[in-house]
Design a protein around this nucleic acid. Sequence first.
DNA 1: CGTGCATGTTGACAATGACAACATGCGGTG
DNA 2: CACCGCATGTTGTCATTGTCAACATGCACG
Lengths: 205, 205
Amino acid sequence: MENRTYHHGNLREALVDAGVALARAGGPSAVVLRAVSREAGVSHNAAYRHFADHQDLLAAVAARCMEQLGLLMVRRTAEVAEDDPVLRAWARLAAIGRAYVDFALTEHGWFRTAFSGATAHGAKHALTDPDAGRTDPYTLLAARLDELVTVGELPPERRPGAEYAAWSAVHGLADLLVDGPLRDLPAEEVAFAVETVLAAVARGL
Amino acid sequence: MENRTYHHGNLREALVDAGVALARAGGPSAVVLRAVSREAGVSHNAAYRHFADHQDLLAAVAARCMEQLGLLMVRRTAEVAEDDPVLRAWARLAAIGRAYVDFALTEHGWFRTAFSGATAHGAKHALTDPDAGRTDPYTLLAARLDELVTVGELPPERRPGAEYAAWSAVHGLADLLVDGPLRDLPAEEVAFAVETVLAAVARGL
DNA sequence: CGTGCATGTTGACAATGACAACATGCGGTG
DNA sequence: CACCGCATGTTGTCATTGTCAACATGCACG
């Protein structure tokens, strides 16, 4: 954390860290170039040596937020204790769905940041990062759907495009609850909505 | 359009109109107070006589964008030509779902603006507006679901919360396609995703 | 022991949201 | 009809932000 010398050492990481911290509390609009630099104990414009512009920095922060989402999904998947393969497959699918919504509700700022900006470009070097796909929400979902096929609960001819159905439903619910018209829903109604959507997804696959 | 006098006449409407025009092309971030004032042929700060702040103006513009979405849904619903009541009910549900996604894709800026900001406050005087609920997307969806119950296609015990399932799926798909990770999906894959999601929704209800 | 070039810094500029002080003129009052 | 209050617009100003340009520093390599 010390400003060892004139040169920071690994400013890029420090900037992203600061951005992630700001994003957590204030969402994407809080990831301000100058504020991030300030937080990193460095002068504004220093960031331009590591990021093309504000958008570029935001994309890097967004990637980290997305990773946080993925990590929670992984954790929740691991927590599923169910021996029967069929029930376990369904439980795991539900677990990542619940994780997705929970993340959106409890880590409001991170969730909104994760989906704000061009994540596509930042993911370019995902090929070099060995376990990048390990926490990618899309990949995690695909694994659950594959598992459902394996245990014989999802007809193989229904497998193509199944991600779209599951992901859309859960993501839409999260977005409506966090940012959208369902923002002020009372807590028990939120819980009801989540269960309803998850049940509908399971039936709809 | 003439600046009749020193006093504009109905500046509020003019400002919202300008905001809607800017939002159409550039999304919510294009709804800039000064740009809107400029567009309305009035000096910056004039808007402060009609809106508390930027957020307030944006909410008004968002309401109009939401109304545009509702209007497309109404139009598409009316276009459904199907005599059989059962098939008509399903066709109408699919029509508003498709309208939702089509709107998001073709009116990118409007869609993002409609869901950016606190629509809740702007909708407060919806009670005074006679046909405000007539174009409210949520109300339109509820009508379709009620129709499904009426024709006996949706068990009444499944009716509660059905909005969450249908709305979440379609909204999530729209958001992912427009702003999210599915942004750069090729056209035919987009079409496939839409059909897959709509089919899953129908099964999941 | 120098020196080049990546990395940080200082300074500047235009755009924006917001506030304060001032200008204008419509509508109601005498 | 003359007057004036108050809603409505305007001008001026300020802090913040993203971005560019010019300059400073010092690590790594010769």
